[in-house]
Design a protein around this nucleic acid. Structure first.
Lengths: 231, 231
DNA sequence: CGCGAGCTTGACGTTGTTCAACTAGAGTGG
DNA sequence: CCACTCTAGTTGAACAACGTCAAGCTCGCG
């Protein structure tokens, strides 16, 4: 999930984000008139798996975790969404039912765009629809990789993958303040909370990471990559 | 992966498949001139994970299994592709590297369409590109569901899912001749071959299926669904 | 100061893989 | 036509990986 620069999607703003900069003014106006901006507090549900999706969600501030709920207690976290990225694109174009839930990790602002207006824009703005297609391409490839990570690797490899994902794609820094708690990290690497904790302190003992409550620092990214590779 | 009626993609044929029926004649001609038809024998590799994808693959006859290879011995099968469906669409639009391999399950015919011609067509045929977007939407939703099946369920639930997938989506019949062997079934349900065999004979003892070498008959689909649901 | 939520650790039980041995059928060469 | 080999399928038993349970800890907050 790549981040794009820019701030708003309303037609009046000069500082538009990547995707919405591709839209013709007339359709930008359409979208502008058919969207609402919603503020979510930390922990609030942005969209719920199983419910109908009647709009596309576009994050403009904050962050959210995406996770799939099974019939069991445990969920599987598929990733973190950063500003200027969509939530629920496949569903809008697929069966209109959310296949995952999204919860705000911090105070978050999202634009909800009515499906019909969004579709009308896709149909009429070639460049925009092309970018959406490419987004799907990239996203699809990423999901395939995630399949391997989660099904073929053991605990250590999966946790290493999760940490690499966080440092490279989300926080984009070797040192960061976790907005995720231990349970989230566990769900991101598809393991029990206890095992996530155990392995985090193993990694700490092995001087691969430094962790103090919510503060996490990657000390040896090469070791992490090695662990990720060998599974 | 839904099947569409129709036979060919060349511009001269009147009996075109769903997707290619949406393309303007001039671009159909372009594609026709920039494609080759390739015959694969059973077991031959159609595309190999990790290699560059310089064309879109469109199956017109036979069938193929799609699977992801990890660093370990075992692979994960993500599904079976039937005629009139694409292979490698995300890669062409993503990073141009295959994220999975495809192997012919029987003698199979595929059309390889040059990426540039395919992209040019997408850019210029609105209806076609819209269908591709919808395809991605449906496919994306399906992948999310598969995540849950594979990560959250135990052996019995996973095997039940695989059998339901085969009977409903692939063979579209309660009784069918398996083109997959036991190892394939195991990889489709992400378990060891031994466990797949063990559970198949459990299901047989419980009168849920009837299995005699390659001939499989679903006797109690409700039981399968129950097993799939409870994990 | 006490309460509760998130965090941590060890012991134990379950699930699923691996290993090894065996069987049946299909193809091969004498 | 009969050994033979090779592969796919099958079964049981040992073992490793992982989850669950239970208990204790820490820190922020009322």
């Amino acid at each position: 999930m790549t981040t794009h620069t820019g701030k708003h999607i309303c037609v009046k703003c000069t500082n538009k984000c990547y995707y919405f900069g591709l839209i013709k003014d007339s359709y930008l106006e359409l979208i502008d008139q058919n969207k609402v901006e919603v503020h979510f507090r930390k922990g609030e549900i942005i969209c719920k798996q199983g419910s109908f999706s009647s709009n596309v969600i576009f994050l403009t501030d904050g962050s959210a975790k995406l996770y799939i709920e099974g019939d069991s207690e445990r969920s599987l976290m598929i990733g973190v969404v950063l500003p200027y990225n969509f939530i629920g694109l496949p569903e809008v174009l697929g069966d209109n039912v959310y296949h995952f839930s999204a919860v705000a990790l911090e105070d978050t602002i999202a634009n909800l765009i009515k499906t019909e207006s969004f579709m009308e824009t896709i149909e009429n703005c070639k460049e925009f629809s092309l970018e959406i297609i490419k987004y799907f391409g990239k996203n699809g490839c990423m999901l395939f990789d995630k399949f391997i990570n989660i099904t073929q690797k053991q605990l250590r490899g999966r946790l290493a993958d999760a940490l690499i994902y966080l440092t490279e794609e989300i926080y984009q820094n070797m040192e960061f303040n976790l907005t995720l708690n231990r349970k989230d990290i566990a769900e991101l690497s598809n393991m029990s909370t206890e095992n996530a904790i155990r392995l985090l302190s193993d990694f700490k003992k092995e001087d691969i990471i430094e962790i103090d409550n919510k503060k996490l620092k990657i000390l040896n990214i090469h070791a992490l990559r090695r662990i990720s590779k060998i599974g």
